[in-house]
Design a protein around this nucleic acid. Sequence first.
DNA 1: CTGAAAGCGCTAACAC
DNA 2: GTGTTAGCGCTTTCAG
Lengths: 335, 335
Amino acid sequence: MTAITTRDIAARLNLAVSTVGRALADDPRISEQTKARVLRTAEEMGYVGNRAARMMRGASSNTVGLVIPDIRNSFYATIAHELSANMAAHGLQLMLSETADDRTAESQHLRELSASRAAAVIIVPTAEPLPDTVKLLAALPHVQLLRRHPSLGQAYFGLDDFETVRSATAFLIGQGHMSIGYIGGPVELSTGAERLRGFHTALADAGLPKKAGTTLLGPPASVDHGHAALRRLLGRTAPPTALVTGSVLLTLGVMEELHDSGTKVPDELSVVGFGDEPGFAWWGPGLTTMRLPVAAMAADCARWLVTRLAEKSDGASPSVVLPGELVQRGSTAGR
Amino acid sequence: MTAITTRDIAARLNLAVSTVGRALADDPRISEQTKARVLRTAEEMGYVGNRAARMMRGASSNTVGLVIPDIRNSFYATIAHELSANMAAHGLQLMLSETADDRTAESQHLRELSASRAAAVIIVPTAEPLPDTVKLLAALPHVQLLRRHPSLGQAYFGLDDFETVRSATAFLIGQGHMSIGYIGGPVELSTGAERLRGFHTALADAGLPKKAGTTLLGPPASVDHGHAALRRLLGRTAPPTALVTGSVLLTLGVMEELHDSGTKVPDELSVVGFGDEPGFAWWGPGLTTMRLPVAAMAADCARWLVTRLAEKSDGASPSVVLPGELVQRGSTAGR
DNA sequence: CTGAAAGCGCTAACAC
DNA sequence: GTGTTAGCGCTTTCAG
């Protein structure tokens, strides 16, 4: 069952392919009558234009690559949804490319996207993208999302990672906590580095020392690391009285571990989480957490990209950063 | 910055395009030396083959369309991840198409996929797909996932919706509950119909009557409907002593409403949920729920599709249905 | 208003 | 072992 082409339609109507093409493109030179005939038979025969052929004639692809670590992470699902919803209206489709934070996979996906001449790429880059990735991306319109790596250009939409964690930590300090732990992602990621800097800045601002062994960094997408890190933190001779987490999945791991171990929150430990998921509100006493404008960020990104692609002009590369907000629930108390 | 073509490489090396093409395709007729030269300059010049051109020469697209209601629903995110992971190894890419359960959007996405000559389509169909959708899908290899509609062919991977809800209900009956409510999706969806049938069958098997006003059907993806339906159920003069839910998001809505209203679970109401999300374990007394093999289902589907596409033969259209399992926690108690 | 022909980048006959 | 040529489906001159 081979697809119908403009030639098939032309043959059926004793017209030239060019006439059929023009009729389908609603060219003003074609008589209304012919247009109607062509449109009707196209419909009848189940004609669907071949995008590959159009692309060969210079039409741009309508595919935008979305390169992310893992769609199961609700951050990325939210992003994918917002992008998809905002771009569909403009005829753009999203190609889903998961990297699992593996830079080889990342590079392969970019090769695929490049081969299909994607109109643009939206990427949450791995910690240290391969040179190949950098080269491929340089030849495509692209934006970085959430994370940024200097080698991948200026266009960027993200969250205010620094201020988010700084203010979470400052809030705990304001409640009288002097010994605070932090469980977050590695400094190799821009997000991990910024969030940790926020943590340290809040401590420094309050004149508190950095205590060794109270900042536990690991894979940001690992619930297990959340479990393990919390166990290690609570196993110390003098465990901290409060905790800040620096990623959604680490927060989840911490919440599970606190639940399973029966730790009294906030009596034994005050906790400020990262992100606000369904379930955070009803966890134990309710999780005090940083709510982050992920959907708004993605929508901004989509809007920018759409106009950027429409204008064909480069324009200024935006570097937009949105602030989070503290949602106070029962997991935090003063000392 | 226009992309490098085989002609550019040929010109640089004083070769014919066909030679370059063959070298890149590792054709045995080309000398190793020439191959090496071609490969090296291709690399140097940053050549990336043009998939559109290849497709015009009969190569099949490596794009598989994934048509789902909303990627933010963790069911669909899990599906997308499993499909993506299983297909990436075979060079297949996933095109994300969200319908929001709107059949016009569904039809438009299928037109796009058809225009880009997708290698296949994996679809969670809307309740009543448009004739256009049916026609377009008929011309593409495709599978239905989770939901099935008779007009869309035989190939199907899903969950055992009937047995899942039947056994959940039977479990509550076994605990002595005589008055049980059900909050689920509409019968227009195959899933909604099957789950409701499961509910009714369990009642009938136990000789219990269908009571009017205790089965509340609505949009399966609406947390709000979960809230509202539960309020209505508890507002009855003689509210049921137990509740079964028939979708993840309805379950979430119910959980939130129970939490907010301070309803005593399981004393005032026993609850069996649908699906098992992070947070279900730590909600109130822990949510007793049906755990569903969504990942396994998607992986099965991916494997089948990959071999189906490789073989080029139609083969038998599978109709696979996987069972759920009850996870017992604290939200259910006997009467 | 419509037709004929060229060409996008690539591959596959068909030469030599 | 390599070159020449044709053609995939479409748009776009250039002719009528």
